[in-house]
Simulated assay, not measured.
Amino acid sequence: MAAAAVESPVVTGAISIEGLTKVYERITGREIVRTYALNGVDLLVRPQEFVSLVGPSGCGKTTVLKVIAGLLDATAGLVHVNGTAVTGTGVDRGVVFQQPSLLPWRTVRQNILESLRFAGVARAQRALRADKYLDMVGLSGFVDHYPGELSGGMQQRVGIARALALEPSVLLMDEPFGALDAITRQHMQTELMRIWAQEKRSVLFVTHSIEEALLLSDRVVVMADGAVRADVAVPIERPRSRTELINDPAARQLRAQLESLL
């Protein structure tokens, strides 16, 4: 008698993507020209996992994030967050973009309170959450300042606190440190590692920097031409340092592997 088939265990992802395709159409003369921003992307981000997307400009990294965030509709494919199909935006997903887009006429604290009000968080919880996450990002002494009074790095901290205050299960970050100077960027990377170690939320992080991806991530997913080209684990123990990434032979080999894929 033939042996009974054994089903493979199903891995439930914080983010699960199957066959994600995004096509843009435009009419040129009498023809419809189709451009594939995404072409059959498969991706799994496990609970409490930090995954980075790297790849050249225009490869589809930000498009993936926007579809997960519910800001773009997919042309085809399946996108689930914690087992629920994405049909629009939701407070289960916090989003941090390259520019924090703060309300300039609101104070730091008011910016977060307004976001929580818009998200439907109960009034009694708003102040508690705002204060908790502003303290977490080191801005408890700047709650009454306006965005124009803050440095770029401090403004981005407000953006991160605003996303965390929603207490999402998934954090989507699209080159959040890309506009910062090198010193501030390194400081913000260190802060993000500290916050992630404390919160352990699932993170999908878009970056052009292989060094940044290796410093922060459990896995690095390489994209090219709207598709996933490679999915590489980062077996370097935390906490990590930039010195380790430079001096450790295994880290140097991993960096060379990723560079060869781009």
Rank of each mutant, 00 (worst) to 15 (best):
A179W: 06
S101G: 11
Q198F: 09
H208E: 04
H145C: 13
S169D: 14
R157D: 06
V206A: 12
W196S: 11
V170F: 10
Q156R: 05
L150H: 02
P100I: 03
Q110V: 10
R123D: 01
V170N: 12
A122C: 00
A165R: 03
K200E: 14
G141K: 05
I195D: 07
T184G: 11
A163R: 02
E175K: 04
V108E: 11
P147H: 02
G94I: 10
M136Q: 12
K200N: 14
A161M: 01
S209D: 15
V203C: 14
S151G: 01
L171V: 14
L180S: 10
Q198I: 11
T107L: 06
D218G: 07
L102R: 14
Q186V: 15
V121G: 02
L113V: 15
P100A: 12
I210L: 09
H187Q: 15
L128C: 01
L180I: 13
K132Q: 14
T190A: 08
A119Q: 04
L214N: 13
G152H: 04
D174Q: 03
E211A: 13
W105Q: 02
F205K: 10
V91A: 14
T107M: 12
M136E: 07
R185K: 11
M173I: 05
A161Y: 06
L150Q: 02
R93D: 09
L216T: 05
A182W: 00
D135H: 14
Q99I: 00
V95D: 04
N111Q: 04
D218M: 11
T107N: 12
S209F: 08
D174E: 05
R93N: 05
G141R: 04
R219Y: 09
F142V: 02
F205Q: 07
R109Y: 06
S202H: 09
T107W: 10
I112Q: 02
R117Q: 13
F177M: 11
A165D: 01
I195Y: 04
L192S: 03
S115T: 13
N111D: 07
V96A: 14
D92Y: 11
D181A: 11
V91C: 08
Q189R: 04
P100V: 14
A213N: 10
F205C: 12
V203P: 15
S115D: 04
L113Y: 00
A179F: 12
E212S: 03
Q125V: 01
L180H: 13
S217H: 05
L214C: 04
L204W: 05
T89M: 15
L171R: 07
T184K: 08
E167V: 02
V91T: 15
D218K: 14
T87D: 08
Q189Y: 03
D135M: 09
Q189L: 07
V137F: 03
D174V: 03
F205E: 07
H187R: 15
G148A: 08
Y133D: 08
Q186W: 01
Q155M: 03
E167R: 01
R219Q: 10
R194C: 09
V206Y: 11
M188F: 03
A119M: 10
L214G: 06
G138P: 04
H145E: 08
L166N: 01
L164T: 02
V121S: 02
Q186F: 13
I112L: 14
V143R: 14
G88M: 05
L139C: 10
Q198P: 00
R106F: 15
A122I: 03
P104F: 10
E175S: 08
